[in-house]
Amino acid sequence: MYPSRFQYESPKTVAEAVALLDQGAGEAKLLAGGQSLVPMLKLRFASPAMLVDINGIEELRYHRFDSDGTLRIGALCRHEDLEKSDIIRQKQPTISAAAPLVADPIVRTRGTFVGSVCHADPQGDWAATMIALNGRIVAQGPKGRREIAMKDFVLGPFQTALEHNEIAIEAVIPAPQGVAVGGYIKLERRVGDFATASVAVALDVVGDKVVRAGIALGGVGSRTIDASDAAAALVGQPLTDATIAKAAELAAAAAEPRSDHRGSADYKRHIVATFVSRLLNQIHSSKEAA
């Protein structure tokens, strides 16, 4: 690969990294897993003057649950860490379902959860799970830390609310109100392909009632879509054929797909409805089985 010339820095602390970004004055890019940035450098779609490589900041590689059930994912937590995590498998079904579907195994060993969210690709897997789970991003800049709700974090394709001198150091998934159930399905032409369409569902359930719901759609708009009407239709309700059908219909209506070589807009909308229905039925039948 022959990228344009850049300065390379490898800070050992978050504060150093922030200082370097600040000094870069908008011309510096943060390098975590590099699975999106490096191809862009290679194609010279991105030509930053400086790369700030945070891989030396070891303390950012973690994922853990607080005692209240809040999940925290550090900026260097790799996709593979989540895929292989026992606690994620036990406690966070939406992330657990999505982790093995992110890109391909090679990318998963290196790419990071937070980096993927910051890349803000409308077809990204983690942005959809973050929206469905009502997650937040913790950003650290020269003036300290702030939290940004996921729905406010992504401004558009490849654009986030981060300032040029801020680092997203952690993703936060709030503790469930009751039992967390959920899932993730993606239609892709091949492992590692961008999603033709993907659906993330995350529900908090008490008894047979849904008390909180999140449904997010990937690949079917210029941003990850928060199908909030579909989710709202489930809150306060049990999962029945009727509520599932209603949610699927509303999710399809929320999609804003474009026709391209991955399929027509109608097809993608149909896939959204099919996947929402399949996920909710799957959740419903596994609850029945339990």
Binding site: D104, P105, R189, R190, D193, H261
Partner: peptide
């Protein structure tokens, strides 16, 4: 990304 080569997965 556009021209797909199959992997061992599919």
């Amino acid at each position: 990304m556009d021209y797909l080569l199959p992997t061992a997965w599919e």
